[in-house]
Design a protein around this nucleic acid. Structure first.
Lengths: 193, 193
DNA sequence: CTAGAGATAGAACGATCGATCTACCCGTTT
DNA sequence: AAACGGGTAGATCGATCGTTCTATCTCTAG
């Protein structure tokens, strides 16, 4: 009947790992994860095969959620591609302002996992490509002369916001980036509006 | 007489730690550091008090060297502040292109060291302030209307280059950032030249 | 009722962590 | 010659690492 009262061990583990790997980094110990999730040791290895598998699944889920959040933010911004792109930076401003913000978890994972063969790297790479496409699609709709290049620049601004937001929070990096994003979106020429 | 043939244990440790903490992250084991430096275990604790002390000293040295490198690059670029600022991004292009580039070691250290009281954080924070001043001074010389804010933006672009360079190396982030840097330097208006 | 799947608790594995310690070697300085 | 400081080598400490294991419990399906 599956009439469980709450989320099962798998979900509890994923949620605890999502939280702890962000706050403490992917170097968190297995014991801390098990304790936070209130889950038996064995369950971790049954469901994910090991710590690396759990980390990979956490990143997979998180990228899917973040991509969907980007889409939602752009959807809420209306039809104008310019407004939709700028809305991304408005959302970033709120993310960075958040009291629990500790930088980009994907960049942190990439920097922390020295082994280039770790499954986490493939996941973060795919995520960046998906976001790049998301941005590029809007730029194409804007008839931007160099949509791919402009998407690279916007992604660079996003990375800059997340990095500066973690290291120099008082400088309001999202606001700074938004100004530059306008310049990128307008293709170096003044806005049409 | 101090007629030693090569660098002593202290220097060897610092050099090995500089290399290994960059390639492997600050999570490298003490044993790996000692083996790479070919130094006795005791020497580490005599000179630096422990692993954290060694890491802090590595960062201290590295920030001093990097700041000096920024100054040198700007010095070589002549007297025009605009050219001096853009030279920074040309230098970044070469850094990112380097085969051993693995991202910004200071951001990596900040993200990896969850404890906000770790001495490394104070060192990286001071470094960013020094670089900010370096950039701001040039913008003041340019009579930029908002030198502090523009320096924030340039620093955001630098962070973006180092992040994107580590995660999307094929996109030539330094070139993308240089274009935006020109826009920042020119204060939103076209270049005077 | 019973067999089996899923979860829990916890011992235990070998490996590694950072740190402390003893013992010895060597060059310098009294 | 003797004392000493800096360096090396290596054992050892308790703690923690990720992983595997046995044993028990609790459901649910047949």
């Amino acid at each position: 009947m599956r009439t469980r009262t709450g989320p099962g061990p798998r979900e509890r583990l994923l949620e605890a790992a999502r939280e702890l790997t962000y706050r403490q980094g992917v170097g968190v110990g297995v014991d801390a994860l098990l304790k936070a999730a209130d889950v038996a040791r064995r369950s971790l290895y049954e469901h994910f095969g090991g710590k690396d598998g759990l980390i990979a699944e956490v990143l997979r889920r998180s990228t899917a959620e973040d991509e969907e959040r980007y889409r939602q933010v752009m959807r809420s911004a209306g039809d104008d591609p310019r407004a939709r792109l700028l809305a991304v930076f408005d959302e970033l401003a709120e993310v960075v302002r958040g009291p629990d913000f500790r930088g980009c978890r994907y960049l942190a994972a990439d920097l922390a996992l020295a082994d280039p063969g770790h499954p986490a790297h493939a996941i973060t790479r795919d995520y960046r490509e998906r976001v790049h496409r998301l941005l590029e699609d809007e730029l194409v709709r804007l008839a931007h002369p160099r949509p791919a290049h402009a998407a690279d620049q916007l992604l660079l601004l996003v990375d800059g916001v997340l990095a500066a937001g973690a290291t120099r929070p008082r400088t309001e990096p999202a606001r700074s980036a938004r100004e530059l994003a306008e310049h990128v979106i307008d293709g170096g020429r003044p806005a049409s509006s």
